[in-house]
Design a binder for these strands. Structure first.
Length: 472
RNA sequence: GGCGCUAUCGUCUAAGGGUUAGGACGAAGCCCUCUCAAGGCUUAAAUACGGGUUCGAAUCCCGUUAGCGCUACCA
């Protein structure tokens, strides 16, 4: 049974790199009919926050990504300690009574640190005695050192990996406060939850050698590993909120009016390729085609700048989805966006669907429906300078007023009838149709640009069109 | 410092011994056109550097450089 997990630590908002890790886990699980586990790695009590936990749920819900099982490491501490103590009891770990090193001492360090002198060799009796006396200690893994071994694992992305145990320090399993370290808790849970594939960021690639030692120390077969290239900033640095701002948070893209799936699609294209030049894919297509063969080994840059905080490819992909997805699927997103902005939908569902269909062809985000699409839903739109210019063309206003009057005189209101009416007026007055066409768009929407004017009439509706022409 | 990983247009990537090094975003131009988009066509733009192996290297090997990751009780 294939089981994967996403294991964020709740110490910050949901990061786009974490979101992508979730997505790859999720796609792999769905593709192979496996189980997706969400596990909150909250063993660092000092840094955990409820706000961060909320942000993880918010982000995943927004992306419409679900999971099958849910755990919190803080509920499972007994298991972690039990497993650590079992490794200790086997003699594969030992107690280290050395006090924690301060940052200043660390800074002075020159060569590689591997273990604290004297502690590996401490006799069991001495160790037990000092522990019983209440002296604080950390439990360290006894990495094979006298006769080094080669620690190996196969990574589904990076291939065969090996490292001499002589280069691995005696890492901690339990802290002096009794809390498990990340390495211990993570491996204990992966064993207990029968995780079959660990899919995570490449920053864990070198930690994996330690994890293999823990798995083996606990008598478990290590799962398969797949490490993902990191998402980095244009300056080559790891994405961080402090340095790069809101671009690293998934909520930024939600607030910018992205469709959840298009952002998922975009994230998939960072560090993975279907290899057939496809870019825009549905969720099902992603599930059907995802594999580790297509995952890259080099880090991917999220392309943003001060002036342009959103990657232009993400925006383009969003506009593609927005314009091509079935309009009935898009409509609920638009409805929610409009409602959130306090805009009411003036007519029924049929009108709404056709209007959304007409105006989306120029839009890139959901927010565009509120800003650039305002005139279709409300009367309090402003007339942009470019539109005013069209209206100020000599004779334009008079022609629009007359068009309004003529339209009011007939009940007929179709794209063809409006066009006929408009072209007849142009012929009658001996002016170019374009003058009235562009003027109409300006009068009806307050904008100099937009969809075909005849579509605009229908989307705005008969009564409102006439009123806006007469008020031009 | 040690260990590990990586290196193709500005960015995302394809090509894993033989291609005019392909596609996409972005940029520029043309066509289409009631405006603006979209769409179609076109242009500019890349194999980090140096050695080797080979008839032939972006592709395999070595080195250099650069970047990233891990590096004493963060995850």
């Amino acid at each position: 049974m294939l089981r994967v997990r996403f294991a964020p630590s709740p110490t910050g908002y949901l990061h786009i790199g974490s979101a992508r890790t979730f997505i790859f886990n999720w796609l792999y699980a769905r593709r192979n009919h496996g189980t997706m586990v969400l596990r909150i790695d909250d063993t660092d009590v000092e840094r955990n926050t409820q706000a961060s936990l909320d942000s993880i749920f918010d982000g995943l819900n927004w992306l419409e990504l679900g999971w099958d099982e849910f755990y919190r490491q803080s509920d499972r501490l007994a298991l972690h300690r039990e497993m650590a103590n079992a490794i200790l009891a086997k003699g594969m770990a030992y107690r280290d009574f050395t006090p924690a090193q301060t940052d200043e001492e660390k800074a002075l360090e020159t060569g590689p640190w591997l273990f604290n002198a004297g502690m590996r060799e401490l006799s069991i009796e001495a160790s037990d005695r000092r522990a019983a006396a209440g002296e604080p200690f950390v439990v360290r893994f006894r990495v094979p050192r006298e006769t080094p071994v080669t620690v190996k694992f196969t990574d589904l992305v990076f291939g065969e990996q090996s490292k001499s145990s002589a280069d691995i320090e005696d890492f901690a399993l339990l802290r002096s406060n009794g809390m498990p370290t990340y390495h211990m808790a993570s491996c204990a849970d992966d064993i207990d939850l029968r995780i079959s594939h660990i899919i995570r960021g490449q920053d864990h690639l070198s930690n994996t050698f330690k994890h293999v030692l823990i798995f083996e120390g606990a008598g478990a077969t290590p799962p398969l590993f797949a490490h993902l290239p990191l998402l980095i900033a244009p300056d080559g640095a790891k994405l961080s909120k402090r340095k790069h701002g809101p671009v690293v948070s998934v909520t930024t893209y939600r607030d910018a009016g992205f469709l959840p799936h298009s952002y998922v699609n975009f994230l998939c294209l960072l560090g993975w390729s279907p290899k057939d030049n496809r870019e825009q894919m549905t969720r099902q297509e992603l599930i059907d085609i995802f594999s580790f063969e297509g995952v890259n080994r080099s880090n991917a840059v999220v392309n943003f700048s001060e002036e342009d905080p959103i990657d232009s490819k993400a925006l383009w992909l969003n506009s593609q989805h927005l314009r091509t997805m079935p309009v009935a699927e898009l409509a609920p997103y638009v409805r929610r966006t409009l409602e959130a902005a306090g805009l009411a939908i003036p007519y029924g569902e049929e009108w709404f669907l056709s209007t959304v269909d007409v105006i989306r062809s120029r839009f890139a985000t959901l927010n565009d429906f509120v800003s650039r699409g305002r005139a279709y839903f409300a009367d309090d739109f402003i007339t942009e300078p470019g539109a005013a210019e069209k209206l100020n063309q000599p004779g334009a206003r008079e022609l629009l007023h007359e068009l309004g009057d003529r339209m009011a005189a007939t009940e007929e209101f179709t794209e063809a009838s409006v066009e006929a009416e408009l072209r007849k007026l142009a012929a009658d007055r001996g002016v170019k149709a374009g003058l009235i066409i562009n003027g109409s768009r300006a009068a009806l929407t307050g904008q100099p640009v937009g969809p075909s004017a005849f579509h605009v009439f229908l989307a705005v509706g008969r009564d409102r069109s006439i009123a806006r022409l007469r008020n031009a």
